[in-house]
Simulated scan of single mutants.
Amino acid sequence: MSKKVTRKLTTILAADAAGFSRAMDADEEGTYAALHAARDVFGKLITRHGGRIANTAGDGLIADFPSTVEAAQCAIEVQNELGSQESELKFRIGVHLGDVIVDGEDLIGEGVNLAARLQSMAEPGGVLISQQVYDQVHSKLTIGFEYLGEKRPRDLPDDIPIYRISMSRSGSAGRVYPEPLSRFFKPTSQKPANSPTPPQPTYPRSVMLAALISGALVLVNLVSGGGIWAHWPILAAASIAAFSMADNVIPRQISALVPARAVVTIAALTLVNIFSWSGYLWVLWPAGALLIVAVTRKILSQPE
């Protein structure tokens, strides 16, 4: 008779030291000491926030928490404390809420795998969280979150929404970036099943207001005469809106190659070139420079 599998829903924190092998090659004893100092920080803060360490293989660790909020707060405090100590090792952290298999003291399963993949995608010193974690913590913690779009973690079949916690030394954070457009466009209440009319989406108030103002500008331009000028303020407003929501409006096939905000900037400059056309396609120069810088930064920011 097969042994019954024990499962539980928990919040998993996965952490790993960035560039550990290279650091060991350069200074084995110093790196070993830094690793143990960092583990002391992890252990202290994980315990303080009600979690436990499930696995400490190599230079990484897996911990789980009954509270998603405590797990996220622990991740922030770990990074802040390691940063304040100017630790020689920088850790990447991923946090996910999911179902796992309990194997003695260890945890295995898709939930652990996803937390580990988020960790591998994080920047050194950074924290990435899944949609499930974001839904639990975004209204409970006074920190900022940056929506990175839907990305496909290595060896996993589907794209998933990913958020980055906006880190600072104090644990506070600044700007909260927009969520996926799919979270803004919510269907209206359903009509009875026998109704032939499908539910219509409701749009964000800011989008409706921008459309109303743009329409008013066009109307004023047409009535006042004296040449066409309304496209300039409309272009400025549209560019600002698109830049702030770039990760949501640029297809991920494109943003995987070129950062979304660089694409929006190039598009805006192209429209300026067209609207002020004088026979010279000058946009090629700033667009080319932006592409080179953006692609270079994207390559350099990839995990090791």
Score class of each variant (00 low, 15 high):
residue 84 S to R: 11
residue 145 F to Y: 10
residue 148 L to S: 14
residue 149 G to W: 07
residue 119 Q to L: 09
residue 103 D to A: 01
residue 147 Y to H: 14
residue 87 S to I: 02
residue 139 S to Y: 14
residue 76 I to Q: 10
residue 133 V to Q: 04
residue 128 L to S: 08
residue 135 D to V: 05
residue 130 S to M: 10
residue 145 F to A: 01
residue 132 Q to M: 11
residue 107 L to A: 00
residue 138 H to I: 07
residue 81 E to N: 03
residue 135 D to M: 09
residue 112 V to I: 13
residue 137 V to Y: 08
residue 134 Y to D: 10
residue 80 N to L: 04
residue 98 G to K: 06
residue 85 Q to R: 14
residue 150 E to K: 09
residue 77 E to W: 04
residue 71 A to I: 01
residue 142 T to V: 10
residue 94 G to P: 06
residue 67 S to E: 04
residue 135 D to T: 12
residue 110 E to N: 11
residue 73 Q to L: 06
residue 123 E to L: 14
residue 126 G to C: 08
residue 110 E to D: 15
residue 69 V to E: 05
residue 76 I to W: 06
residue 121 M to A: 11
residue 113 N to H: 09
residue 103 D to G: 01
residue 123 E to C: 08
residue 127 V to P: 12
residue 94 G to Y: 13
residue 125 G to T: 15
residue 122 A to S: 12
residue 73 Q to V: 05
residue 116 A to L: 11
residue 113 N to Q: 04
residue 71 A to K: 00
residue 123 E to A: 09
residue 132 Q to T: 15
residue 129 I to E: 12
residue 80 N to K: 10
residue 82 L to W: 04
residue 125 G to Q: 15
residue 72 A to E: 03
residue 89 L to T: 04
residue 142 T to M: 11
residue 122 A to N: 08
residue 84 S to L: 12
residue 97 L to C: 06
residue 106 D to F: 03
residue 82 L to H: 03
residue 78 V to E: 08
residue 141 L to M: 07
residue 113 N to P: 13
residue 111 G to N: 05
residue 126 G to V: 15
residue 76 I to T: 10
residue 86 E to C: 03
residue 137 V to G: 04
residue 95 V to P: 11
residue 85 Q to W: 02
residue 101 I to D: 02
residue 126 G to L: 09
residue 103 D to F: 01
residue 149 G to Q: 07
residue 143 I to P: 00
residue 127 V to N: 08
residue 120 S to L: 06
residue 69 V to R: 06
residue 117 R to G: 13
residue 138 H to F: 12
residue 89 L to C: 01
residue 100 V to A: 07
residue 145 F to N: 01
residue 123 E to Q: 08
residue 149 G to A: 05
residue 139 S to Q: 11
residue 121 M to T: 14
residue 100 V to H: 02
residue 127 V to R: 06
residue 151 K to Q: 09
residue 77 E to Y: 07
residue 108 I to D: 12
residue 87 S to L: 01
residue 122 A to R: 13
residue 134 Y to M: 12
residue 109 G to E: 02
residue 105 E to V: 13
residue 128 L to N: 13
residue 76 I to P: 08
residue 96 H to L: 04
residue 70 E to D: 15
residue 109 G to C: 01
residue 142 T to K: 14
residue 135 D to R: 15
residue 148 L to A: 13
residue 145 F to M: 06
residue 144 G to A: 09
